[in-house]
Design a protein around this nucleic acid. Structure first.
Lengths: 297, 297
DNA sequence: CCATTAACATAAGTAGTACTTATCCCATGC
DNA sequence: GCATGGGATAAGTACTACTTATGTTAATGG
């Protein structure tokens, strides 16, 4: 008997993959160098262990059920990954593709603009960026390295601080002139404040904390615009709709090019920041090391 | 004997994973409900079939070799994926996480800004965006859906046009005033033209084609700035450094908010565009369908 | 310095699984 | 209504892989 959470014999999945791809038990048997009854029996066993039909038996052939389709997709990608890595190990060649997991803001404002530079240095390495809304879902990430915002110290992972959180208000040059610079904090409420929606911003600094750190009291006023997304907030700031919070160095390029103006008087820092997070159990490949060296430089 | 490209018995990998995780054959045997020699033999067989040592035998235990580390990473993620999907199928529950593969520009300018809206509609679905520099590497993508730029008609895939390529020059409002609008094409060479580096732009329209389609001759001049990355080019356009090419609707938000001004006289369209690409063999899940319906609306 | 211990390796017998061969069954098409 | 081509079933067999028993190794302690 099979235990609930245990895997069935994985050979069954190899047989299933061939049969599902070819939509024929006979053809699958031929490809696998075995016989049709062997395939038939293994598929039957797999279906029994799952309690779900994977194929519908039709006249002269089979078609996949919904469950079969779902299983095929994952089976193919997993088997392909395994085949690939086993091949690589046989040839003793290092992996050339690295996957980086991070959040939308870091990907869009920091990583993507800089990646071509890395590509210039290491043409042979292909970087895949993976972003997810459920940002810190560490256990399910099958990445070489993650770059996550937080306090650091992730259980079961090595983490290293890449950037400390450093926040300053930013606005368009036009708005900056209009108010002839903002010299005291209370000036700022004259302009609309651009704010990230609470469940998006997660651990990021918000206006309330910034005011508090400067010894001022934040009072929610009408002149606040909420955004679901940092990209949209930055766009609004650029177009002069209000004052946003800028993370250094995410927005450095925008400030350098004059699209945004920083109000450095009101800069605040915290113990949070972006961390390079890697699994304890994995030794980084040479490609990963090259990427991290470049990132830290 | 084992054929070159074939997989070894996958049970070996399950045993390997346990042994590598626990760094003990005895403990792995205990976890798997078997005996230490069984583990020892399977590891030996796996190492023999790969021709590489996976463990280094040290006093009272084992440690992973480099090859062992590499194999562990992929093995863990693949086995986790398989366990997950088999569990899901047993419970007859639909997948709730979908992975979208696309290019940097589409991700940064179109998808990411709009995703919070989708999240509002479907809180239970977690969207993962995966971008890669080797954009159209279709066979190796294990995604639910890809959104790729090109002509459509990918071998072995269903594709459906999402957006037609529609390009117009864009610049900052300031530059636009400065030249009191650009009314004829040749006006445009007065300002610096922002250009994507050839090996990045791939199939995208470039200035040469745009001039050609308007019956004008493009002559490379000094007033051209090259960029490795569309994000950087757009930043330069926003900050008034020159005229860039804007893809509709990627930059619509910027134009709507007044950060950029479009020069619609010179709009050109092509048969290229962004296509929704899905594998022929996979039936989209309900989550995927919901995402695609939202995307097309 | 030798005995003990705790890890993995090896060897050989055994048990159980899974493959093969042969046959059956069913739906279609001529 | 018979031939065809696909999968299902059944039973014997062969082979794989597990178990038990023993060997090997290296560090520790008396």
């Amino acid at each position: 008997m099979l235990m609930g959470s245990e895997l069935p014999p994985l050979q069954w999945l190899v047989v299933f993959e061939a049969a599902a791809r070819l939509l024929s038990f006979t053809a699958a048997a031929h490809e696998l160098g075995t016989t049709q009854p062997a395939v038939s029996q293994q598929i039957r066993a797999l279906e029994k262990s799952l309690g779900v039909a994977l194929f519908e038996r039709i006249y002269r052939g089979v078609v996949l059920t919904d469950a079969g389709h779902i299983l095929l997709k994952t089976t193919q990608s997993s088997l392909r990954d395994l085949r690939e890595v086993l091949q690589k190990i046989k040839q003793k060649s290092a992996p050339r593709r690295i996957t980086v997991v991070t959040d939308f803001a870091f990907a869009a404002f920091y990583l993507m603009p800089r990646l071509p530079e890395f590509r210039g240095l290491h043409k042979e390495i292909d970087i895949r960026i993976q972003t997810s809304q459920s940002g810190t879902d560490l256990p399910s990430m099958d990445s070489d390295v993650a770059i996550l915002f937080g306090e650091g110290g992730y259980q079961g992972y090595r983490s290293e601080k890449l950037l400390s959180e450093k926040v300053y208000p930013v606005c368009s040059p036009k708005l900056f002139e209009e108010f002839s610079g903002f010299t005291v904090l209370t000036d700022m409420v004259k302009a609309p404040l651009l704010k990230l929606n609470a469940d998006i911003s997660q651990k990021w600094m918000d206006w309330e904390q910034l005011f508090h750190l400067h010894g001022a009291q934040w009072q929610p006023s009408d002149s606040v615009m909420e955004f679901d997304n940092y990209t949209l907030l930055v766009q609004a700031a650029i177009s002069g709709q209000g004052i946003g919070l800028g993370w250094s160095p995410l927005l450095d390029d925008y400030i350098k090019s004059g699209v945004l103006v920083a109000l450095p008087h009101f800069t605040v820092e915290s113990n949070n920041g972006y961390h390079i997070v890697q699994s304890n159990h994995h030794v980084p490949s040479d490609s990963t090391k090259a990427f991290l060296d470049w990132l830290k430089a």
